[in-house]
Simulated scan of single mutants.
Amino acid sequence: MTWLLLPFEVTFVQRALVAGVLVSLVCALVGTWVVLRGMAFLGDAMSHGMLPGVALASLSGGNLVLGAALSAGAMALGVTVLGRSRLLSPDTSIGLLFVGMLATGVIIVSHSQSFAVDLTGFLFGDVLAVRSADLAGLAVALAVTAVVSVLGYRSFVALTFDTRKAHTLGLRPVLANGLLLTLVTLAIVASFHVVGTLLVFGLLIAPAAAAVLWVRRIPLIMLCAAVGGVVSTVLGLVVSWYWNTATGATIAAVAVALFFLSALASRLWHRVRPTDTDTPADQEWSEQTS
């Protein structure tokens, strides 16, 4: 087993591991709601919708995180405004904003002398170049995400299950939806410059989706998603070390591969032992309103 531990004797790999664990925990908390609410397309759109802000900040010498935050905020605001229209479906609105923001970002980045490098860095990040300050930022993002997740838990469950009934119970689903969008934005913005949008989105969706196949309780889904993200990070770092592959992309690929293995195992298991088909939100909501 020495070969498994060998890469983690190097300092920059140790920092990459810590960063991956922190990102996994943040993404587990947020990604569970993204998966349960069917917001995967929105998460993808927001992760790539940051490109205009990042590109402008890069060309002007400004703060990349601030540029990403402003761009992601504009994307979230656009989704909220267009989402109120009865003439457009949510997917249509998100798709239009996604393409528009991504195209604008590529146009801006194309004026840079290092177009390919900038865009590659945005998509894949450089987890092996993580600094102590980056780890501190991720730790703060995790703390904020955990606090909001605990305080808004019941409202998030209501929002996932039945928005109209949430109104009657005074759970303020509009505010809950805004907080959820804020958490998605925070997870993406806090992590992209460290590990890239590809890895953030991979850890946001794949571990939570794999967990949903096995457990019904939302807290357990979050726990399993966190474990899955950490395992993906460790395996991805080891594979990247020995195969000399792009680290961020390798971690994301491992997370997706683990999801498909989980899906296959779950399908075989449920053929042998059929279980109920209630969703986690159904069970949580029925218990809270009973």
Rank of each mutant, 00 (worst) to 15 (best):
T2N: 01
T2G: 12
L4V: 13
L4D: 09
L5H: 00
L5R: 09
V10M: 06
G20V: 10
L22A: 03
S24T: 13
A28M: 03
V30P: 12
G31Y: 14
W33T: 11
G43W: 03
G49H: 14
G53P: 04
L56T: 13
A57Q: 03
A68C: 06
A69E: 03
A74T: 03
M75R: 00
L88E: 02
L88H: 07
D91K: 12
T92I: 15
S93L: 04
G95I: 02
L96K: 00
M101C: 14
G105K: 08
I107E: 07
I107L: 15
S112D: 15
S112V: 09
S112H: 14
Q113T: 06
A116D: 15
T120F: 11
L123G: 04
F124V: 02
V127G: 10
V130W: 10
A133D: 08
A136G: 05
G137H: 11
A139T: 09
A141F: 05
S149R: 00
S149G: 05
L151M: 01
S155D: 11
F156D: 11
A158D: 08
F161R: 12
D162I: 01
D162W: 09
T163S: 08
R164T: 01
T168W: 03
P173G: 13
V174F: 03
L179G: 14
L180R: 07
T182N: 05
T182C: 02
I188R: 08
A190G: 06
S191L: 04
H193N: 13
G196R: 07
G196T: 08
T197L: 01
L204G: 02
P207Y: 15
R216T: 10
R217S: 15
I218V: 15
L223K: 02
A226Q: 05
G229M: 13
G236E: 13
V239D: 04
W243Q: 12
N244Y: 11
T247Y: 13
T247A: 13
G248N: 10
A249C: 06
T250G: 00
V254R: 13
A255Y: 00
L261P: 04
L261V: 13
L264T: 13
L268N: 08
H270K: 09
T279G: 12
A281Q: 06
W285E: 08
S286Q: 11
S290V: 12
